[in-house]
Nucleic acid binder design. Structure first.
Lengths: 258, 258
DNA sequence: ATTATATTATTGTATGATTTATTCTTGGGA
DNA sequence: TCCCAAGAATAAATCATACAATAATATAAT
């Protein structure tokens, strides 16, 4: 889904409760429904979004499951504090991105990647199966073939990182794919539309290094290679972000379905 | 909620959709609804749990929000692959624990803690406010005062770790409280009922060390102190787990509300 | 002033009808 | 025989309405 000026254009017909959950979720992110406040009652929300009670309540249950809100009889539906939000949830991240990201948020994002992805590489280097390695190789090949196609490149990049996560064998690490997706989505949007030839070669060299280390079953080498890769990616994005003085940015979120 | 022989006794009257979500979620964890399979249609599930379609569908939306299932018109509701599950979700972790944990799972759990909590300590040492430090101090005091009360001790322990997460300022780190809660819940259940006096002093010494480092704003020291603390906790639990040859274990999950 | 009871607003649950989307089937052509 | 298109079947998605449960608030009784 593509965002322009912070207003969403529904790309396809999505289910009603999905749209409502998206709408309320985004409003919470933007502070339109402040933290700690009570949301409007069912009746009002039904009218606001033009849906039935069923669809509305399903949307609320979706948000409650992600830790955004909590409903209690008679007292109403309260917007919970941020530390109840599940930041590893793909939707919450997407809504964050759609709101526009600031340097602080990017810092947090890369702090996590910088910590977890090297771990994933290290364990993947130990536990990878031949099939998993093959998936990485395929994704890497796709990256090589997408020098000109930035969207395709980003998609292949995400697939590469996810293949590593999967090979780590740790289900917790496998759950952070959405975080990486969010980071790549910002890179896609922020960095210069025509990436230089040198930069492409440098990025590919780093990714190839990670792959080689995992292929050769060298945990610490794989870990370090990934650490430097992420560090440089973070620097690129944050510099670019500082250059663009926009508060809100056009965001394109990627999903595996794309 | 307490588990005995894998059968749940509902401790209090909970909402219908909550019970259904819990029931289906647990069944998925246990493999009773296998991954990739289509679960029974609305009508059958309604009868199975004795609830209306409304309650059932809200439960399904809750599970869908956590990445466990996906519903498509005509095709049915499919149990998604594990890497779609959000392992940082408190409910999913709880259901995992209720099912009983194995050494592998404990390993994954501590792998994550071992990586993220030192980071949290390091950033907390840099960015903590006086109020946040005070929260840590209070929790630490509570731990000192609960040598005999194991449940109270575990609760205070969790509060201490969560105070650190909060002080880190990183919302992603603040979301992993449930992971720590899960780890502590297993420790509570597995380790010997009467912990020795020496062990208590050792654990307190380590926690005090983490606190001191954060108080003195020494990031690397705080990070290392936490790393060794977790390492030893992991060793204790896994050894104890290996001793107890039970496949399923009585689990007591803690929440902030307790 | 305190306790007990009634009120009432808001979420929670139930039910049946209707709509929508997708698979499966069937029929017609090439 | 094979392929494509039109239609039927089916299960989820949505709607509309009614009723129940709960807890905050107000009111009355002690």
């Amino acid at each position: 889904m593509v965002l322009v000026n912070g207003v969403q254009r529904p790309s396809r017909t999505r289910s009603a409760h999905d749209l409502v959950a998206h709408g309320i979720g985004q409003s919470i992110m933007q502070g339109r429904f402040p933290i700690g406040s009570i949301l409007p009652g069912d009746a009002e929300l039904m009218e606001l979004f033009g849906v039935s009670r069923t669809a509305l309540r399903e949307a609320l249950k979706t948000l409650a499951a992600k830790g955004l809100i909590e409903s209690k009889t008679k007292v109403g539906t309260k917007v919970l504090d941020r530390n109840n939000w599940n930041m590893f949830d793909a939707d919450i991240l997407e809504w964050h991105l759609e709101m526009g990201v600031d340097a602080r948020f990017l810092g947090w994002l890369f702090e996590i990647r910088q910590t977890l992805e090297p771990l994933a590489c290290a364990t993947a280097a130990q536990r990878r199966t031949p099939e998993q390695l093959e998936r990485m190789r395929k994704a890497l090949q796709a990256m090589y073939g997408c020098e000109s196609n930035r969207q395709g490149f980003t998609k292949a990049d995400l697939a590469f990182h996810q293949a590593i996560l999967e090979a780590s064998g740790n289900p917790f690490l496998q759950s952070i794919g959405s975080v990486i997706g969010a980071a790549l989505a910002t890179s896609f949007t922020i960095s210069s539309p025509v990436s230089s030839d040198d930069r492409f070669r440098e990025v590919m060299r780093q990714h190839q290094g990670v792959f080689d280390a995992i292929e050769q079953r060298k945990p610490s080498l794989a870990s370090e290679a990934m650490a430097t890769l992420i560090l440089q990616a973070a620097e690129r994005v944050q510099i670019k972000h500082a250059e663009s003085s926009l508060a809100k940015i056009q965001i394109h979120a990627f999903s595996e379905a794309d």
